[in-house]
């Protein structure tokens, strides 16, 4: 294994693009270093991105938050304006691992690790988060849902890395929420995770919504039918029933020791209802 700590993103992409064999980006290392313990795993080139300017910072502008790719999840909950704007994303990010893991793990890493059960990913997808990707050919913005392609696989090309996750500031009467099911009270892998974002019109009806499901398929699911089921409604019981049914239908899960197909489908509906209620409540108090 070779370790490099470039000072600029241009150097980082050049290193990644020029790697002959395996190449990995090191941000918090909470997945990569665990894999490195396995003797069969050859990390190849490891590019530590933490010396690159801005990577460890959350920048707030008039209309967005830019979360550097190496910002630890613990820092999200310490950023009062971010917590106020996107409580669902912060709560999801803070569900990952122990205090020690929180000190290092990142949302960009959670996304690039491409586990179907990643907690922060459905929350980011529901929020319409974008990833700023830098590569040898320049910079591109990509919707978070277009990055995971299946377990451990992303749409990033050779030489590319995520520089930051960009969240636009939420509009009035909008709110987000993320809930997951685990069999314990903490520190476990989601059996199902659901992120909901919604915005209300002036009369209090749901005007827009995004619903994302985790751990119910090989990658995060943006459940468009589920969102459509609540748009135009006051989020009454009938709308919540339709939301739950659409979420269950959008699942394509596997049976494993953590949950059966039937269970996961059912729970996706239940969690979607609850998360939608929380998002709705948050939207109701945001002017």
């Amino acid at each position: 294994m070779r370790y490099e700590r470039p000072q600029t993103i241009t150097d980082a992409t050049a290193l990644l693009a020029g790697a002959a064999g395996n190449a990995h980006v090191l941000a918090g290392g909470t997945d990569l270093l665990v894999r490195m313990q396995n003797d069969d795993f050859d990390a190849g080139l490891v590019v530590d991105i933490k010396a690159i300017g801005g990577m460890c910072e959350i920048v707030e502008s008039d209309n967005a938050f830019t979360i550097g790719a190496a910002v630890p999840c613990a820092a999200l909950s310490e950023h009062a304006a971010l917590v106020a704007a996107w409580p669902g994303i912060v709560e999801a990010a803070n569900l990952i691992g122990s205090t020690q893991i929180q000190s290092r793990c990142t949302v960009a890493g959670n996304l690039c690790n491409a586990s179907p059960a990643a907690d922060s990913v459905p929350a980011m997808v529901a929020a319409g988060a974008q990833a700023r990707i830098v590569g040898p050919d320049g910079t591109r913005m990509v919707a978070v849902e277009d990055i995971p392609q299946g377990p451990g696989k992303t749409s990033l090309e050779k030489g590319e890395l995520i520089e930051a996750i960009v969240l636009t500031k939420p509009g009035p009467r909008s709110g987000d929420a993320y809930l997951r099911f685990i069999p314990r009270t903490e520190m476990d892998i989601a059996v199902v995770g659901v992120g909901v974002w919604l915005a209300l019109d002036e009369s209090g009806l749901v005007q827009e919504a995004r619903v994302a499901l985790g751990a119910v398929g090989p990658k995060v699911v943006l459940a468009q039918d589920a969102a459509a089921a609540i748009v135009g409604t006051p989020l009454d019981d009938a709308a919540l029933d339709a939301l739950a049914a659409a979420c269950s239908a959008a699942c394509n899960p596997i049976d494993d020791k953590r949950g059966t197909v039937t269970f996961r489908k059912q729970v996706a509906g239940v969690l979607a209802r609850r998360a939608a209620r929380i998002a709705h409540e948050r939207a109701g108090v945001r002017q």
């Binding site: 090191l26 290392g29 909470t30 270093l33 530590d48 630890p72 020690q100 893991i101 000190s103 290092r104």
Partner: peptide, 23 residues
């Protein structure tokens, strides 16, 4: 050695980390 037990906990720049998951 895999970030699960905390026996290796140290503090780095004010945050507690598993030193087995830091190079």
């Amino acid at each position: 050695g895999t970030g699960d037990c905390g026996a290796c906990s140290t503090i780095m720049d004010g945050r507690v980390v598993c030193s087995c998951l830091v190079l």
